[in-house]
Design a protein around this nucleic acid. Structure first.
Lengths: 355, 355
DNA sequence: CAAACGGTGGCAACTGGTTGCCAGCTGGGA
DNA sequence: TCCCAGCTGGCAACCAGTTGCCACCGTTTG
């Protein structure tokens, strides 16, 4: 026997359905049903049981419930880097909707490491009912392995056979390019993020298309690490190969780059216009305030969880082999937030650049 | 019966200790011991079992293990607001040490709401082994109730009977006041945070002491909400009752206030010197870069988890009544990061203030 | 040579719910 | 009046491990 009548590890000494059953003069199974299967028990009986349970301070043990049913009421969110503000609002959105639905969030930070990510999955997979992979760095096939085990939604990554929620990067990028073109810029430089990032590819691709349509030139520098440090490197690269406008893979790079440019004596937006991506925390109080393509972060998290919940509600679906039912894939709109880091292309700059 | 031989909900169809036992020709209990109680089983037998288990792809089911033992390998961190950058590094620190020790973090965001916090506790308490309350807004007695159930560490709050990890606010505040006094400021205004915040009281108290020691004046405005919006309000309040130096309850207020002051045509640091608290993400790229009392955030989270782990390692300790053993309480040093938001008090300002 | 002992392995009870199946009771239709 | 069906409630078999206790075995000791 696991734990004799001796001291509990928990102070509560919580009553079980057996205690409640005895007190209410019914069988344990009836108590169980009174809670989990309303209607299966006579209304009066159920009411009496609930009454007694309440008085005894009974709370159903989630572990015990989870063991036979698999319903842990836990969802895992795997984020590439908790300290990246990109995830803050996503987490908030996910947490909100999960909590509202009676689920609890288990957050694993994998610090941009594929190895840590695999470990986190190993550890959490058996405990949770669903998975949100927020910008996973793993390969598609690794993700598929996980998705075979339980409902999975990927964020900001497109996979034909797995539910995903992404920002409409193309449209956002197009807006940014149009904005810069409208200010008279004729060449735009893209400061690339990690090659492993799906969004990076999409953004660059969209930029090429948008610039092509408008008859202006696109250039690419990088890849840079998606951090402020990466932005500093980007600033040096941009100083070596100047242009009047730059679009960064994300806000962190943009912000770091603006600092770097300032240190190099290059003014934003007078000499270079800078556009970021994501509209993260801080984009509105950096100097100058950053013009950026705003991703609907909160919604991103919320929608991901909502899709998960829906999938969990559907019947048992055998071994989750065939993705029957329409595979949910959401594309949320991004829009441009115009702030202070972009301005008209001035000929003076071209001069300055070459000095 | 819960689930007949019919289709599993999980694709894996994971083998159990019973399968392994059959395959290895031993009893299930021996398999169990081979994993959880090394030494209790003959080395050769154990090795053979492990071999077989490995081949079958056996993984022990954490739920099943948790039910009789209570060991869920889960720790809960309750944060007042996940979108507050103050928590980012704390979470990272907590996550790191928890993961290293084989624990997984369960993060609950309670959005500054006492009600949500109570709910989060209700939900997570039965599933986790330990609790980190990051700047809980609950009353001391509510916290004690939780702490009676399982090992608890509170962050940035001092409670005589509960383990806590805090920043040495007094010392940090003292440094900030000395810094400002050294620049010639003779009156310092404190922009208060929430009254419910323990740190708020400590900081104000420490500021009064420090100013008293140095023979300068302390003033207090507020309370303000610990957000950028609160900072905007603080800016208005400060404009109405000017002084040459201000220390904010936290960086968010400081940053919001600097923006507000700028809008009101008041220059930082020329007209007003501003000092924040916490050195959050963004404090180095706001305008002007914020001078702030740096809290060792990452360590804060790490130490909290470490204390928890240690407490979990100690014997069973009956019903956790008496806090036997030295109650761990850590005070981590804070230091002042001098950046651009503070400068010498200029007499000109006094003039401007009264115009 | 018997008793004592440490090392191993197995049995079975136990964690706390869930649920398939069955039986008793009641009520409605034939 | 009899039969069948629909409600209810109980029994007992799970879920997948953990662990107290006992038995067996070979060895050492008195």
């Amino acid at each position: 026997m696991a734990e004799p009548s001796s001291g509990r590890k928990r102070g509560g000494d919580r009553p079980t359905i057996y205690d409640v059953a005895t007190a209410a003069g019914v069988a344990p199974s009836t108590v169980s049903r009174a809670f989990s299967r309303p209607g299966r028990v006579n209304a009066e009986t159920a009411e009496r049981i609930r009454q007694v349970a309440m008085e005894m301070g009974y709370r159903t043990n989630p572990l015990a419930r989870a063991l036979p049913t698999g319903r842990t009421s836990l969802l895992a969110v795997i984020v590439a880097d908790v300290t990246n503000p990109f995830f803050f609002e996503i987490l908030r959105g996910a947490e909100e909707t999960a909590t509202a639905a009676g689920y609890t969030l288990l957050v694993a930070d994998v610090q941009e490491s594929v190895e840590a990510e695999r470990q986190a999955l190993d550890r959490t997979l058996p405990m949770v009912e669903g998975l949100v992979l927020a910008t996973s760095r793993m390969s598609d096939s690794s993700i598929r392995v996980a998705a075979k085990q339980l409902p999975t939604v990927v964020l900001n990554r497109s996979m034909s056979d797995i539910a995903s929620v992404a920002t409409d990067n193309s449209r956002g990028m197009k807006r940014a390019v149009e904005h810069l073109a409208g200010l008279g810029h004729t060449t735009i430089t893209y400061l690339a993020g990690p090659d492993a990032s799906w969004a990076n590819g999409v953004r660059w691709q969209a930029m090429r298309e948008a610039t092509h349509e408008l008859g202006i030139r696109a250039r690419r520098l990088g890849p840079f690490s998606p951090t402020q440090a990466g932005g500093l490197a980007a600033a040096r690269a941009l100083a070596d190969a100047p242009s009047t406008a730059a679009i960064a893979y994300n806000d962190l790079i943009a912000i770091g780059m603006m600092r770097g440019l300032m240190n190099l004596g290059i003014r934003v937006p007078d000499d270079v216009s800078v556009v970021g991506f994501d509209n993260i925390f801080g984009a509105d109080f950096c100097t100058p305030q950053l013009t950026t393509v705003a991703a609907p972060l909160r919604q991103l998290g919320a929608v991901a969880v909502r899709i998960l919940l829906e999938e969990l509600r559907t019947p048992a679906r055998g071994a989750r082999q065939a993705p029957q039912g329409p595979l949910k894939t959401a594309l949320l709109p991004a829009n441009l937030v115009e702030r202070m880091s972009t301005g008209p292309a001035s000929p003076v700059i071209a001069h300055q650049e070459t000095e």
